[in-house]
């Protein structure tokens, strides 16, 4: 018991702590509100997280190499508009729409990556700039193309991209859950069981060592940015199909939540460390808070908007706890020597 507790406090693995936190949150909301604990509501929570989960996965790749990508929310928004454009104006079938959107997302990712690796601008500033540019482009398309004035899509062939269930009649497993499982599963294999995946961790842990070990650092970084862009585009498409609506504002305030989830999930901002399960549990935690606060507002007069405050506090706590633990560990090492 004691060593288990010690592991939670000092250890590197925070997934256990996150799962406990998630369980406590679910317990809290179930006790406080009448309708939180129901299968309908669990489907609602799961229905709310796919785009978040997918973009978080994208950001994780960038954070693993020690960078930050703030433009992912804008890429998602641009894709949302682009998907509507392809569908309404170009009349693309779904598969072509998907491929084109993911390709454009990859292009934006490549743009970020090239600026960061070739010119050498800090990733935060780069993506702060591209965030504004890509969002501007999205508004441009949304306002200048006449068919885009109403971004609503009602064609079931498109909507089923995110609204389909397996099996179809009993509506047991939503297709978005399959996407999440697939993307995280493939990422797990890619990051942990391919040499390129290990190179990503190596570059993040120590760029100079990685270079000396013969890794093409710039190429690894570029690939991470491209993956992040492609995943965000995919997330955008999922969101459009879920909502039946694509707007230029889509995902405007998303990046803050995405960064929070990735950091909360235990991915080191300095790079080189982080696990997919941690990120996934963190996404669930934020999803439960968002959903639970709505329920809480109905039974108490606690404003729904406290969730934004809670989000910020959790982010600060996660980072603060990590900092404190780091200095603890450093002290322990010193006393041992």
């Amino acid at each position: 018991m004691k060593s288990w507790l010690k592991g939670l406090v000092y250890g590197d693995d925070i997934v256990g702590a996150l799962v406990i936190f998630l369980a406590l949150l679910i317990l809290f909301f179930s006790l406080m509100t009448p309708h939180f604990w129901s299968s309908n509501n669990f489907y609602a929570i799961i229905g709310n997280i796919p785009a978040m989960a997918i973009v978080c996965l994208g950001l994780m790749y960038v954070v693993l190499i020690g960078d930050l990508d703030l433009s992912l929310g804008s890429i998602l928004g641009f894709t949302a508009i682009l998907a509507v454009f392809f569908f309404k104006v170009m009349h693309f079938p779904l598969w072509l729409n998907l491929i084109s959107c993911v390709f454009v997302g990859g292009l934006f990712g490549a743009l970020n990556g090239v600026i960061v690796t070739k010119i050498g601008i800090n990733s935060i500033i780069t993506t702060l700039g591209t965030m504004a540019i890509i969002r501007g482009l999205a508004f441009w398309i949304a306002t200048d193309v006449e068919a885009m004035q109403i971004g609503r899509i009602t064609d079931p062939s498109f909507l089923n991209f995110a609204r389909y269930y397996f099996p179809e009649e009993s509506r047991l497993i939503p297709i978005t859950l399959v996407y999440i499982a697939l993307l995280y599963g493939v990422s797990f294999l890619f990051l942990n069981h391919t040499s390129f995946g290990r190179k990503i961790y190596a570059v993040g842990a120590n760029e100079a060592t990685a270079r000396l070990a013969g890794i093409n650092v710039k190429r690894v970084k570029l690939v991470c940015y491209i993956i992040a862009g492609m995943l965000s585009a995919f997330g955008g498409l999922v969101l459009v199909a879920q909502l039946g609506l694509g707007e230029a504002q889509t995902g405007q305030n998303m990046i803050l939540e995405v960064v929070t989830a990735v950091v909360l999930g235990g991915v080191l901002l300095t790079g080189g460390k982080g696990r997919l399960t941690g990120v996934l549990v963190a996404v669930l935690i934020l999803g439960v808070i968002r959903n639970g606060m709505v329920h809480l507002e109905q039974v108490t007069d606690i404003s729904f908007y406290w969730r934004d405050v809670a989000k910020g506090v959790i982010l600060l706590l996660a980072i603060g706890l990590y900092s404190v633990r780091k200095s603890f560990n450093a002290k322990r090492l010193r006393t041992r020597q």
Partner: peptide, 21 residues
């Protein structure tokens, strides 16, 4: 000893959230 960007990102969410509340 927290990272200034992430700290103030959190503060951004908190202040904006409080303003809404």
């Amino acid at each position: 000893d927290m990272d200034p960007i992430i700290t103030t990102l959190g503060a951004m969410a908190i202040t904006r959230g409080l303003a809404y509340v």
